[in-house]
Design a binder for these strands. Structure first.
Length: 647
RNA sequence: GCUGCUGUAGCUCAGAGGUAGAGCACUCCCUUGGUAAGGGAGAGGUCGAGAGUUCAAUUCUCUCCAGCAGCACCA
């Protein structure tokens, strides 16, 4: 019989009969390893213990101690065990797919009746029974036709479709968990008893389209999480609770920042405190853009259909537009984007190459009729304010301008504490306009800019806008969640559609290239992200209420007013609290409202002209003079861009 | 938009086929208290909207609206 040489992680190698399985290899090492083994890595591929090895290879046997492999197997086997449990309880249920995802798995089912929350505990119970049975996991490779016939006979049409979509070069692998069978690429554990019975939890049921296609049937998806130990499950559930505490919708209510109404779904009612944050952001961005040579404009919210036909929105973006028909029977639309308005301003004069690059910015409020199910607090709304700008430049200036935008974006994110930024580059889609040459140029400009900036990026082929490729800036927050904010897009198309030109040095008319860019993206969304990132405890300069001056006794009321006046004059958002309440009560209330600083004043402070400073989250207080406090908080209230300028 | 769930006081939530309750918040009174809830009293609701069943609907049924989770879509 032919021999194969297997090399172990320690560098030793050994000869085996060809077709040996990792299970046999493990058994050759020790009985306990044979029992504990869960899978192997063979030549870098995650390998089932039952799969034969036909050629020389490196091999590593895994146990539950190998976190990466253990998690994958536990979650994958859990998916199968859950599907088996569901089919044992409701035999008519059809199975589809059940992949491993972050922290767990899901499995999609086709069943007429909806699963209820009570059903989940029923399924969990059945899963534990199955795990306790310690049923062996077995696998075979089948002929394609045999597998298709098998699933047709078993009335599992989704499996038939899956097999038909598996490339001919790949084996059709069948798995059994006891008597229960599934089509699966594996690998899997040795038997269900290797699953920890108390480290998983079924989380939720939701609809999901078959194959992610909204034209196809909606299935029922059950989500579960699973870990290799009980502690890790617990830690995960705790993390979910922590994330829930950061929910900006909850914090927005508690901090009295904004609210929503039924009659304006997806549109924000900004309260004074929230609007202050919003305006602080705009003021900051306006300074940064002014410094970077942008010119700010304002364009109409409602414009005639003809303009939207020229821009292409009327036919390409209609589903997302709010329309308005007027008494004179004209069709108007609320602007979903600012670009056509900026085209009007660019085109209003004969432009010279001397004016380029021309950077037209606008804090324009755009309206988009988003699908109802997409709305989500401030993060996904139907009307929002963009820190939008369009840069008109010559083809030669393109790369430089991209680079400048990139630099500006990173510098701005840094000021907000976001240093972990990732870039997605979306390239030409199938449905596109413009020549391949222009796409080469615009994609090249973005790539060159990124390379020159030393940025790493991920390419998403075919994901670009129909008129040009785009960069998307994704930032990672304090608890590791990713948020897409800024965008930079190259566009050769709109200038052409609007007949935009500039006069070159040699006196000819030429079409400019146009960049679309937004740095915060949506001000609403960015505000929501900041709230979640800081758990409502915004940095002092962004905090809507920066200082509350609280009296301990009513005899300090006049002094409280004096302190607040001094702070206000120094540019600090300061408030009076001289209510007839104890200082404990006031401290609690303002702490819950995430006010960064509470100044307590009683007899002592009045006599000594001091304040007692208590910062949010600190038990320790300190006493400083009124002058010192005004200086300190005035500096704290200064936005980071102005601080740098002053130093 | 799709699937499922939810909608009762400003907020968080009980409740029941016979037109509603708690805690916090709010108002007033007492209390002037030194760093996360002092005490008392009071006021506050067309029970998301419309239709149907019923002697009677906030409760049951249907439709619509909004919210939540996920999918699809996306800043």
């Amino acid at each position: 019989m032919a021999q194969v040489t297997l090399t172990f992680p320690d560098g030793n190698s050994k000869s085996f009969d060809a077709g040996v399985t990792p299970a046999e290899v493990a058994a050759g090492i020790s009985n306990s390893l044979a029992k504990k083994a869960i899978s192997a890595t063979v030549n870098g591929a995650h390998w089932d213990l039952q799969w034969p090895i036909d050629a020389d290879a490196s091999i590593a046997i895994h146990t539950m101690k190998d976190e990466v492999q253990a998690n994958e197997l536990v979650r994958h086997d859990m998916a199968h065990v859950m599907a088996r449990a569901v089919q044992e309880i409701w035999p008519a249920t059809k199975v589809t797919i059940g992949p491993v995802i972050d922290n767990g798995w899901y499995y999609d089912f086709d069943r007429a009746e909806p699963f209820t929350p009570e059903d989940l505990s029923l399924i969990e119970k059945k899963m534990k029974e199955i795990i306790n049975k310690r049923d062996p996991v077995t696998t075979e490779v089948w002929e394609r036709d045999r597998a298709i016939e098998f699933y047709k006979a078993n009335n599992e049409p989704y499996k038939v479709e899956l097999i038909e979509s598996i490339p001919g070069s790949e084996p059709i692998r069948m798995y059994w968990h006891g008597h229960w069978q599934d089509l699966c690429r594996g690998p899997h554990l040795q038997h269900t008893g290797q699953l920890p019975g108390d480290t998983f939890k079924l989380m939720s049921v939701a609809g999901a389209y078959w194959r992610g296609d909204s034209n196809r049937p909606m299935l029922q998806r059950i989500y579960g999480v699973a870990f290799t130990s009980k502690d890790k499950l617990k830690a995960h559930l705790t993390m979910l609770e922590e994330a829930a505490k950061r929910d900006h919708r909850k914090l927005g209510r508690e901090m009295d920042l904004f609210h929503f109404e039924e009659h304006a779904p997806g549109s924000v009612f900004w309260h004074p405190a929230g609007w202050r944050v919003f305006q602080t952001l705009i003021a900051y961005m306006r300074r940064r853009q002014d410094a970077a040579g942008y010119i700010e404009v304002n364009t109409p919210d409602i414009m005639d259909r003809a303009l939207w036909e020229t821009s292409g929105h009327w036919f390409n973006y209609m589903d997302n537009m709010f329309l308005a028909k007027t008494h004179d029977d004209r069709d108007y639309a609320l602007k979903p984007m600012n670009c056509p308005g900026h085209m009007m301003i660019y085109n209003h004069a004969l432009r010279s190459y001397r004016e380029l690059p021309m950077k037209i910015s606008e804090f324009g409020k755009v309206h988009r009729y988003e699908p109802s199910g997409a709305l989500h607090g401030l993060l996904r709304v139907r009307s929002f304010t963009q820190d939008d700008a369009h840069i008109y430049c010559t083809p030669e200036q393109l790369t430089d301008e991209c680079l400048k935008v990139n630099d500006l974006i990173l510098s701005i994110y840094k000021d907000f504490g976001f240093e972990d930024v990732h870039v997605k580059l979306s390239t030409r889609p199938e449905n596109r306009i413009g020549s391949d040459e222009s796409w080469d140029l615009s994609e090249g400009a973005l790539k060159t800019a990124l390379d020159r900036a030393g940025m790493s990026y991920t390419i998403f082929g075919g994901e670009g806008a129909f008129y040009g490729p785009k960069l998307e800036y994704v930032l990672r927050d304090a608890i590791g969640r990713d948020w897409q904010c800024g965008t930079l897009q190259v566009d050769y198309n709109l200038p052409e559609r609007f007949g935009s030109t500039y006069v070159t040095q040699s006196g000819e008319k030429q079409a400019p290239v146009m960049l679309h860019r937004a740095l915060f993206g949506s001000l609403e969304r960015f505000t929501g992200i900041l709230i979640e990132n800081w758990e409502g405890k915004l940095p002092f300069w962004l905090a809507p209420r920066q200082v509350v001056v609280a009296s301990i006794t009513s005899e300090a009321d006049d002094y409280v007013a004096e302190v607040v006046a001094a702070l206000t004059a120094a540019g600090v958002q300061a408030e009076v609290d001289i209510r007839n309440e104890k200082i404990n009560y006031k401290v609690r209330e303002h702490s819950l409202a995430k006010v960064p600083v509470i100044l307590a004043v009683g007899h002592r402070e009045v006599d000594e002209r001091t304040v007692t400073v208590r910062r949010l989250g600190e038990k320790q207080t300190s006493v400083v003079s009124l002058e010192q406090a005004v200086a300190d908080f005035s500096r704290d209230a200064t936005p980071p861009d102005l601080l740098t300028a002053a130093e």
